[in-house]
């Protein structure tokens, strides 16, 4: 192979590798950034972190809804299963789980769990804990859980704030 052809082939290989590294890397980089912000640089993993009411100043996650109350838990399964409890809410609510590649791999809402819910999150392929009613397998060790509660007014938001105080996100002991 001539020297010029070597450079062309090497350049194309570098270009292809860079292309796919960026395309596959964007979701993980974005999720890593969100995980960092939600957990305050991993200082508050496996606990709910309530987002302030959404206003023009909200800059944690793109396209937030000003009509919803958000609670986020940056979960880390490296220390074992994580249990999540969501207190009942008289209007729409959902618990959604996002893997480290940004996939929304699980959603539970008030239609299925009108009285609130408890979910035990484990790493995919690991043994299911005994006595856990609703076990969900996460495709990654780390990810983000999000509780949305419909709260379009300040009084609704205040009520959601009170309700969310009963939510739990913690390592299962």
């Amino acid at each position: 192979m001539s020297e010029a052809r070597t450079y062309v082939v090497a350049g194309l290989l570098i270009a292809i590798a860079t292309h796919f590294a960026i395309v596959f890397g964007i979701p993980r980089v974005m999720m890593h950034g969100a995980f960092d912000r939600v957990s305050a640089h991993s200082a508050h993993t496996n606990e709910w972190n309530e987002a302030p009411r959404v206003t023009a100043a909200s800059r944690t996650i793109v396209r937030p809804s000003p009509d919803l109350h958000y609670d986020a838990c940056a979960y880390d399964l490296s220390h074992g299963p994580v249990v999540m409890r969501v207190a009942a809410w008289p209007n729409y609510w959902s618990l959604s789980l996002f893997a480290d590649n940004s996939d929304n791999f699980y959603v539970l809402d008030d239609r299925e769990a009108h009285e609130g819910a408890e979910v035990t999150l484990i790493r995919a392929g690991h043994e299911h804990p005994k006595d856990a009613a609703r076990v969900v397998e996460s495709p990654s060790d780390r990810g983000i859980a999000l509780v949305r509660r419909l709260a379009p007014t300040q009084s609704d938001w205040d009520a959601a704030h009170t309700a969310s105080a009963h939510d739990v996100c913690a390592v299962l002991h």
Partner: peptide, 21 residues
């Protein structure tokens, strides 16, 4: 948000609508 999304779709959604249901 779909687990079946392709890599390009997933990248665009992560950029423009992270944590979308």
């Amino acid at each position: 948000g779909s687990t079946g999304a392709g890599p390009y779709t997933r990248a665009v959604i992560a950029r423009d609508g992270l944590l979308a249901l």
